[in-house]
Amino acid sequence: MNGRLSIDVYQAIADGVSAGADADEANATALKAGLGEVVAQAQALFGSSYVDIPDDDAREGILRTFQNEGFFQGVRWAAYFGIYNNPDVWLKFGYQGSSVEHGDYIDRGFSDITFVPEGPTLEERMAQVKG
């Protein structure tokens, strides 16, 4: 991982979820109800609002309670697409995305690591398939 993702990435995900709720009343109702349950669970377990719980494992534990609910999976997949299917952040993960417009990796490091031995040379590979 090459540095942290900028806050804009997360804001865009939140904006997308909000826009989805704005466009669909049933979606909005489920999302509001679901978030209400998260808030209530945080109060019940920690006497605190969700965002004020300092321990990230504790926050994740609260969300695990709701992970099979539609509202949660809606947000989860929005986050998945906003992070892992987002070409703007792929380089942070060391992923280079589409390749063909650059020609290839044959001259761009398809075999450039140094911590294990090289593969066989063309001559060795040619000799291997003779006879």
């Binding site: 990796y105 398809f110 075999s111 294990v116 090289e118 593969g119 398939v129």
Partner: peptide, 22 residues
């Protein structure tokens, strides 16, 4: 198909396979 039937060499080894091969 690369190999003896065609006489076409197998492909060059990429990073990921070099790790597995080692």
């Amino acid at each position: 198909v690369t190999g003896k039937t065609t006489g076409m060499p197998h492909l060059p080894w990429n990073n990921g396979f070099r790790v597995l091969a080692e």
